[in-house]
Design a protein around this nucleic acid. Structure first.
Lengths: 145, 145
DNA sequence: GTGACAAGGTCACGTTAGGGAACTAGCCTG
DNA sequence: CAGGCTAGTTCCCTAACGTGACCTTGTCAC
């Protein structure tokens, strides 16, 4: 995501605006972990590390995810080398997933973010409520006669 | 974002799938910092902290951002209480932005993520290249006769 | 032979993020 | 009075994200 430029027309190179994508590794990382299920999958796999989890078990541990999204998420993670996929050629072929070393190294910063979220998101929620209320006041004053 | 459920039909509560949005502060945080300019804005403001920056100066320091997106980004940050907005009622009214204490506290985990990105994203890039090449091979074998 | 399971893939769809271009307000300069 | 500055806002558009529903391939149970 955010890898192509959806804007209306083509971009002349060297014009302005092509310096943000290639240069910023943080953007690329956030494009990955910012997708809806990525961080959840990493967390679940990290809890099991260095063990493995199968597709159906992952589905069970990530409530609300569809097969399609789990599949897509895992494909991205494998493609990035954060997760290893191991196919066991048994009776019905079983597929096992585990975090690679790279994936495990991401768990550090990611769990720091989780801790921050758990401690500070309630405050952000309150701030949003306050903002909503004040704009509501203005809305009432402006809209109804 | 990711706060409404766009899926085709309504959700019976207690059925399955309503436990992911309200319960997960990490999701809410990632929905915020995952947007394209959020983390960039926080970083730029953090570099200047505890000083302030004006709208035009922020634009200059965030290459490629449009007025519209900068405006929207700052509004979200202010709404969340991560950034404080101060209007100076001078000749042309000047608006100053600075990180709040809450915003500054986010810089810690966020910069940890940036460090991780800078050290490990090249490896992820290589992994993706390898994946592209192997699927390209398969594509050639499958598609052209 | 009909159904179930595993691990997905594909299709059709709606929502949303993000981009561009143009417009606004009041004041200042030429 | 034409034009420019600041700090935005508004409209319109597209591409990507995410969802649900259905299809697949192969083996096992009834």
């Amino acid at each position: 995501m955010t890898t192509s430029r959806p804007g209306g027309h083509d971009q002349r190179p060297g014009e302005r605006g092509d310096l943000l994508d290639p240069r910023c590794p943080t953007r690329q990382l956030l494009d990955r972990i910012g997708t809806k299920w990525m961080s959840m999958a990493v967390k679940v796999l990290a809890e099991e590390a260095p063990g493995e989890l199968r597709f159906a078990e992952l589905r069970r541990r990530i409530p609300g995810i569809s097969q399609k999204m789990l599949s897509a998420t895992l494909q991205s993670l494998v493609r990035d080398g954060l997760v290893a996929r191991r196919v066991e050629s048994t009776v019905p072929p079983a597929v096992h997933y585990r975090l690679t070393e790279l994936g495990l190294s991401l768990e550090g910063p990611l769990s720091a973010l989780r801790v921050w979220a758990e401690t500070h998101m309630p405050e952000i929620g309150r701030n949003n409520q306050l903002a909503d209320e004040s704009t509501l006041d203005q809305g009432v004053r402006r809209v109804s006669w």
